[in-house]
């Protein structure tokens, strides 16, 4: 086995030391710091982006909450207005109905009063008209002169009787 030839050991170990040290120094001082830097930059960038996304998300959620609040406020306000209007309209209607029924009642009462007045008047006219008829009829039938007051009283009584 050529590997076991001791005469080659010194040169191999010498060059191993030289090359390995060179590679170690290059990796340690040049290559690895650069890689660490690149990886850290990326890591920071990713974390920064995530953070930014988080902030934006929170902001969007805030806006959404505000929007929803506005919407809810508007809805409740609209409902209030609607409710109030409906109430007002109901009240108005009731008031008008009351006024109308009152007017109708008053008119009915006035009509009734007029009817009653005219009725009384008609009765009076009948009495006056009957008075002469009663006096002359009595004269013709029994030949007696009936006093105006007696005749009036009798007519009134008859009228009262018929009315009852």
């Amino acid at each position: 086995m050529p590997q076991l030839d001791p005469s080659t050991f010194a040169t191999q170990l010498f060059w191993l030391f030289l090359t390995f040290t060179a590679l170690f120094l290059i990796a340690w001082k040049v290559a690895l710091p650069r890689m660490t830097e690149v990886l850290n930059t990326r890591q920071e960038r990713i974390e920064g982006d995530l953070e930014k996304a988080e902030t934006l998300k929170a902001e969007a959620e805030e806006v959404l909450a505000a929007y929803e609040k506005t919407l809810a406020d508007a809805t409740s306000e609209a409902q209030g207005v609607h409710h109030r209007t409906a109430q007002e309209m109901t009240e108005e209607r009731t008031k008008q109905q009351e006024a109308l029924s009152r007017t109708l009642l008053e008119q009915a009462q006035a009509a009734e009063a007029r009817i009653a007045g005219e009725k009384t008047e008609a009765v009076d006219n009948i009495r006056e008209a009957t008075l002469g008829v009663v006096q002359s009829a009595t004269q013709r039938l029994i030949g007696a002169e009936v006093a105006e007051q007696d005749a009036d009283r009798a007519i009134r009584a008859a009228l009262e009787e018929s009315r009852a």
Binding site: S7, T8, A10, T11, Q12, F14, W15, T19
Partner: peptide, 8 residues
């Protein structure tokens, strides 16, 4: 002997 060899 520290010759530059094929190994080196």
């Amino acid at each position: 002997d520290v010759s530059f060899t094929n190994s080196s």
